[in-house]
Design a protein around this nucleic acid. Structure first.
Lengths: 392, 392
DNA sequence: GTTAATTCGTTCTCTTATCGAACTAATAGT
DNA sequence: ACTATTAGTTCGATAAGAGAACGAATTAAC
């Protein structure tokens, strides 16, 4: 069937007539009529009136039926758990946030499944069909355990996707949170010219998510984008660099606080250091310069290897305007080509958006392109403001 | 049509009966009979006898008709032009090598098209259907010019693919030589477990070709893998590093010769420096250690960002056993995960093999999967010895 | 206000790829 | 010779989709 193509066209080109879908897809009119008819009977699309003002007969226009089903996107962080319930168009129907269960392990599983259940039955939404969970670690494809996630205890001892699946009875996908953030930014960007992007997150740690050809690059062991281990910043041949990562040792929260303390003798939080720099504190300025220099080098490495069209900076530190400006300046001094660097548009909600985009793609695939090889449905993002409002 | 699946099965599983193809593809027996019948009439496959010794009726077995068509793979280097003519199974039918026309520009175009024509009409081969040319530079997708190719003069002034196409009347694809080498190694490796690899070439320059998911990663401007510009080795903030690349300044031919001269006062060629190191020359040993250290850092960068399953070292310098051992040792000291590092199996012929693999894939696609979206035909490589013998 | 041009959507027929089942053919082992 | 087994063909049946023709509804133009 070419159901997927039809759904894709309706989803992408908003309210649209069957004749237009025929032109867009290249399929014949009656094929479209039949497919749309079936979709309408099954409740996936619905009519929204008629065209008017044009020459010729009025066309009945269709759109995706937003409430035919829902998906949930979960951002499982070390301190907070966020759950967003989205309809088929990606609009946020309900959201809730809780502090993460610090006892970790199965208790977190219980917490997430309880929150998802509560959110999805808040009122009369469509059936929950898919859940995507973003975690601050590397999901192991075979065992389902989450490696390198020091912020959530015992999360590497259980098969997270499987445990959640059993409790909720819905298909669950677990993905690294930075990867999801990269996808989220890419989704909302919705660019047609180039289909790639690297999301660089600087916060308690430093990491990157890579989108190439609209798809996530994970690497064989799921560790693609672990730029904390780039071999510069600290001496990469010191033992400590093998554990923490040479670059991470000089560019994440702890390193920034430490560096400022070494220079000034005072211990300030990272936001306070930014304040101090803005107020003219020379030590703070030096600290930020040093950090930005390292991040510029990291960006240069990424560009040298991947040649992306865009780098998006995110995380509590990375997205700061003061840092971005410095990074852009330094990058110009150590790399011949210029690449656009932009701050994250979605901020703390990037991973949530990425989860929603994956969930919707998967759902559409399973519904309309069951077992087709090259099929790929790209669900267009909702208006930026709509999404932002839903999760604020 | 599922022609592509049938061709794929016959190409991959050698001489094979129609019944077996049916089982492999999941298509029904008479569908296979019809498709194979058509392919045989058109000359793409042929029978090669019957099975014997099994219970039941004897099966007629088919294989790809090797001489139904040919493709040419060209390695257009700064000093040599190599042309290999391959049949449909990837076997080399004829080969020729000439010094590169030093006048550059259109003269090189003439040289290549003359060589290809001469090679393909040497005797009675199948019709030439596709030509792939590997160049030491970055092909511009829009203009067809080759950027960053200092070794072939004026090659950035012309639309290479187009000029060649007009002279030869065959479809021509131009690709970076390191990218082709990466594909060639990947093709010959023919691994089923993981479908990615990074080819690192160290010679007059340093560069990398990246294969992910069986496909080349090119980047937006075709500059992916330009690891000469990784921001370490020399100081990346010096003006010279913006031109030559910070890493390239300390790891390619010129840098190695220079470094040894600085240490010892003597000027030796790179092979001579390797000899000296093997003979116990401390300065040569130090030089090679330094170079290997930088290449290990480059490898660490690649692994941190891409997380590949394999790195293949190539180029006149990179493939040397003495260097590889050092790189492996240093990499273990600056990166926590171990990744397999292997020397190039194809040596100077890697790009030629990569060109052949692309040419064959394209040809099969255009013949049997015209305008199918997700279609992809993977032509299995010939036996390693067969190929090697053909181009030696 | 009638007519022409235009667009939408349906009906009907035709093509093409594929499958399923029945049937014929050939072979090894008993 | 008989049987189990595998190979390959013949003969419909089915389903996705294309193409053409036609009816319906609407605006523009005279």
């Amino acid at each position: 069937m070419s159901q997927s193509a039809v759904v894709q066209a309706i989803a992408t080109y908003g309210p649209i007539s069957r004749a237009s879908v025929a032109k867009l897809t290249g399929l014949s009119k009656q094929t479209i009529s039949e497919i749309v008819g079936n979709l309408e009977v099954d409740g996936w699309v619905r009519t929204v009136g008629q065209t008017e003002g044009h020459v010729g007969r009025r066309a009945v226009v269709y759109e995706i039926s937003p409430d035919a089903a829902t998906v949930a996107s979960v951002d499982l962080g070390g301190t907070k758990v966020r759950v967003a319930l989205c309809d088929l168009t990606g609009c946020v129907l309900a959201e809730r946030t809780e502090p993460t269960e610090q006892s970790g392990g199965l208790n977190v599983v219980e917490q997430v499944s309880r929150m998802v259940r509560a959110t999805s039955t808040d009122s009369e939404y469509g059936e929950l069909k898919f859940v995507v969970v973003g975690v601050p670690g590397v999901p192991d494809a075979t065992t389902g355990a989450i490696h390198m996630a020091p912020n959530i205890s015992d999360i590497d001892q259980i098969d997270l996707a499987n445990e959640l699946n059993q409790r909720m009875g819905v298909e669950v996908l677990v993905e690294n949170d930075v990867n999801l953030a990269a996808l989220g930014e890419h989704w909302m960007d919705n660019r047609t010219d180039a289909d790639d992007l690297v999301f660089v997150s600087v916060g308690t740690g430093i990491g990157a998510g890579i989108v190439v050809d609209g798809k996530l690059m994970r690497g064989v062991s799921g560790a693609a984008g672990e730029i904390g281990f780039l071999p510069f910043g600290a001496d990469p041949f010191e033992a400590e660099s093998l554990k923490t990562g040479a670059l991470e040792r000089v560019s994440a929260t702890e390193a920034i606080v430490g560096q400022y303390r070494d220079l000034s003798g005072n211990t300030l939080s990272v936001p306070a250091i930014f304040e101090a720099a803005n107020a003219g504190d020379a030590d703070a300025t030096t600290t930020l310069d040093n950090v930005a220099l390292q991040i510029a080098r990291a960006s240069a490495s990424i560009i040298a290897i991947l040649d992306p069209s865009l780098i998006v900076m995110g995380g509590s530190i990375g997205a700061r305007e003061e840092l971005m400006q410095r990074v852009t300046r330094f990058l110009g001094q150590c790399f011949p080509r210029t690449v656009s660097i932009q701050p994250s548009k979605l901020g703390a909600h990037a991973a949530l958006a990425g989860g929603a985009s994956i969930a919707l793609s998967h759902l559409h695939m399973s519904l309309f392109a069951e077992g087709q090889k090259g099929a790929e449905i790209r669900v267009p993002p909702p208006a930026f403001e709509t999404f932002k409002a839903g999760v604020s």
